[in-house]
Write a protein that binds this DNA or RNA. Structure first.
Lengths: 196, 196
DNA sequence: ATTGCGTTAGCGAGCGATAACTAGCGCTCC
DNA sequence: GGAGCGCTAGTTATCGCTCGCTAACGCAAT
């Protein structure tokens, strides 16, 4: 299903930048064309509509988030270390390309276009399922405490990470996300593993 | 500073409904006027601009969230029970008026208007400060474990509650928010208090 | 009581700006 | 000589907002 041309890639990349700068309202066909240095109709040679551009962007993210699924399919009892490594690497990716956080955590923004909202919901659900699998296995291995539900833990983990990234964005990327993320993960480990 | 007329209240209420239905893009002066049953210019008799309507709505929420500050100013060592009661009552309020959650947790939506983003940031910061105060005092009282930072705990609590509400909205308010909230809070208590 | 006046809250019409998008022509390169 | 890709110039729709005007009310002076 993938197979973007160079031009399409450039269009999607710059669209993400525009969203990061001024929110979804900053992404207009005009702005996008100007930024790339072509006319508006030129964009329609590469995407049939503006919605298709956004769908392409989301596909990109959906693909990129397959990493965790892969990880947990490779082992029966994925360690917390693996999970932590995955989270840290994700945060590092955000730090390298801060603009993508404006898109990946802003589901509210895609309302009114059902195809977009559905795709976003799918991505979120898959993420939660992956996390749930890891946690459940960790509980089975006795690595993770079992006196609280794994579902509840996904709420804690996903929620706190999302909020951390939100705060990072709202402060203008004014702190070291990966560093703070490591702190958060350390805290999660303290809370979620059996205490000695 | 407050002192809204009846008409202004109606306008703000219906604006929140419109946002809840179709996101911020669903809130247009036209839609709002049609919904209330007056002409567009009539709205400008009551608010100087659309932005002023949104500012009014945020003021409303800012005021409503003073409850927690009050609570913690009344006692030196606010108990976890008080905090929990406050959270549950907040979730109950959401359940009574689900539409407000579309506004209160959708900061990303107010980009491009600096007055709006600043106000939203203020509300969030105040919330965190209140929470931090409660947690720090709880640690001082020995009620809350001290081997993880209170700042980190605010991230956990705020983040998980926000995500819970987000999931609630995305499922079309398809579960009992207060009930799930009680479960979440119970889990937080298990994790954050000293274990026996 | 009536006249006159100010205020409030409404109206239809329409402003300029901008949105997403399209029709059609031209150039270049296999 | 198509196919691919760009352009100028336009479309229709909608945005927030303003225009001039009016119906209805309270109220003081005549």
């Amino acid at each position: 299903m993938e197979g973007w041309t160079e031009r399409q890639q450039e269009i999607m990349d710059q669209a993400v930048f525009l969203i990061a700068e001024n929110g979804i309202q900053g992404l207009t066909v005009r702005n996008l064309a100007k930024r790339i240095g072509v006319s508006e109709p030129a964009l329609y040679r590469h995407f049939r509509s503006k919605t298709d551009i956004l769908l392409g962007i989301l596909d990109h993210f959906a693909l990129a988030s397959e990493g965790m699924r892969e990880m947990l399919s490779r082992t029966d009892c994925p360690s917390l270390e693996q999970l932590e490594a995955f989270l840290v690497s994700t945060l590092k990716k955000f730090q390298e390309r801060p603009e993508i956080t404006a898109v990946i955590f802003a589901e509210e923004i895609f309302q009114n276009e059902p195809r977009l909202t559905e795709k976003v919901a799918n991505i979120m659900r898959k993420h939660q399922e992956s996390l749930l699998t890891v946690l459940t296995r960790g509980q089975a291995c006795g690595m993770i405490r079992s006196d609280v539900s794994a579902e509840g833990m996904t709420l804690l983990i996903q929620g706190s990470i999302r909020l951390l990234v939100s705060r990072w964005r709202m402060t203008g990327y004014g702190f070291d996300l990966a560093e703070e993320g490591r702190g958060l993960i350390e805290m999660l480990r303290t809370l979620l593993t059996h205490n000695k």
